[in-house]
């Protein structure tokens, strides 16, 4: 056998006829899309980091902002968002189990696991809506916007004293004059934010909104694919690669949340 080149799997060659990546066209395109989408999210999170560094002293601490938990009173920082994270991780697991069932041509398994994935996605989107509602609505006490536009917090429920951002407490006649000149604000929107700078609210709405849009479209796409599975489209086709492709998208959404969770709520 001298002089003969070692045999190479034809699928690994670049010569044409086969994908040298051993990945189908559709899956490669999904990966390209995800990489470019990752660029967008990275840009958003990096600009968030920059602005947060720039306005460090007036930036709200997420722990003080997101303290609600459904049906529970009092302060529960991080708990609800931890629950949301858990739901999204769980739905990633059910998604990958659906893909695995697809590899075995197990239609029933794909249906069951995809349904759970959709349920998880809906719970997550609902949770986000709930959190937005509380953020926009604000606290019962609200805050005071001074004449110069900066936000200060009330010292107590009586609303006769103020806590400045540098930690100084103002009471008595000084406080009364500042209250007279300022306006009471509640909740957060794009121009005013009772927790601190409006920029925090802008980034919060944009980044979690952009991510939430991804989750929502993921739920819709998952639903469309589930209908196809039920109709037996992929059974007839002989493979469940479409489930794999939406699975990639769904895991990406989970992946982005891992970073949003860290940068918005933990750090």
């Amino acid at each position: 056998m001298s002089g003969k080149a070692p045999s190479v799997d034809a699928k690994k060659l670049w010569g044409g006829g086969f994908s040298p990546f051993n990945v189908s066209y559709g899956k490669i395109m999904m990966w390209f899309f995800l990489v470019s989408d990752a660029f967008s999210f990275s840009g958003l999170l990096v600009s968030y980091g920059f602005m947060r560094h720039r306005f460090e002293e007036v930036w709200p601490v997420a722990e003080d902002v997101f303290t609600h938990f459904p049906f529970l009173h009092g302060d529960h920082p991080l708990l609800y968002v931890a629950f949301m994270t858990f739901i999204l991780i769980m739905s990633s697991v059910t998604m990958v189990l659906a893909v695995e069932a697809g590899h075995r041509m197990n239609k029933k398994g794909v249906v069951v696991w995809m349904t759970w994935t959709i349920v998880g996605g809906l719970i997550f989107v609902g949770s986000q809506a709930w959190e937005w509602y509380h953020f926009i609505h604000g606290t019962e006490l609200g805050a005071l916007q001074l004449a110069d536009g900066s936000i200060v917090q009330w010292l107590s429920d009586a609303k006769d004293g103020l806590l400045l951002t540098n930690g100084t407490e103002v009471t008595g006649a000084d406080a009364a004059a500042m209250i007279q000149a300022g306006t009471e604000v509640y909740g957060a929107n794009l121009t005013v934010n009772e927790y601190g700078v409006p920029l925090f609210a802008n980034f919060f709405f944009f980044i979690t909104g952009f991510h939430g849009t991804h989750v929502f479209s993921g739920v819709v796409i998952n639903f469309v694919i589930l209908v196809n599975v039920l109709k037996g489209t992929y059974e007839k086709r002989g493979h469940y690669e479409m489930v794999e492709k939406v699975g990639l998208y769904w895991h990406f959404v989970d992946l982005v949340w891992v970073f949003v969770f860290t940068f918005f709520y933990l750090i």
């Binding site: 086969f18 994908s19 990945v23 189908s24 899956k27 590899h103 075995r104 002989g238 493979h239 690669e241």
Partner: peptide, 14 residues
């Protein structure tokens, strides 16, 4: 030509 790159696996591998 998606089918050419699709991976299937058995009950055991699953």
């Amino acid at each position: 030509r998606t089918a050419e790159y699709v991976s299937h696996h058995s009950e055991e591998e699953g």
